[in-house]
């Protein structure tokens, strides 16, 4: 059963067993504008929570995505290489960034659930 958690920086991690699928939220994609390029990490890379996971470029900006959890990169979303617009179209689905093998489940408890995140977005 998948469980989705959010950060205050508008990233999500969708937990499926030992795997966490990381991406950005709908609010994030709307703020970033049309995404033109995404630099993803190499498979096998170990990333600590808070470390840079990806870089997202729009026409006039480049933003860094910091990992919401620690883990090892097991898969990156190859579709984004040719079609970064997927993030704008379907950020929580086909527009995911990276799959991580999670190493510390306790990190998840520090993140928000869907209701808390929605409240967070409303407060902005």
């Amino acid at each position: 059963m998948a469980d989705i958690r959010f950060t205050t920086d508008h990233e999500y991690v969708r937990v499926d067993g030992e795997t966490g699928i990381v991406g950005v939220t709908d609010y994030a994609q709307s703020q970033l504008g049309d995404i033109v390029f995404i630099e993803l990490p190499e498979i096998g890379k170990r990333i600590a929570k808070g470390e840079q996971l990806a870089t997202v470029e729009s026409v006039k900006a480049a933003s860094e995505l910091f990992s919401p959890v620690s883990g090892e990169v097991v898969e990156v979303n190859a579709i984004l290489e040719d079609n970064p617009a997927k993030v704008n179209e379907d950020p929580l689905g086909a527009g995911w960034f990276v799959k991580l093998r999670l190493v510390d489940e306790s990190e998840l408890s520090g993140l928000m659930d869907e209701a808390a995140y929605e409240a967070h977005v409303r407060s902005l």
């Binding site: 033109v36 390029f37 470029e57 729009s58 026409v59 006039k60 900006a61 480049a62």
Partner: peptide, 13 residues
């Protein structure tokens, strides 16, 4: 185009 590489956007990176 591809200006996100450049100093006026990426600054120290």
């Amino acid at each position: 185009t591809l200006s996100a590489r450049e100093q006026h956007i990426r600054r120290d990176k």
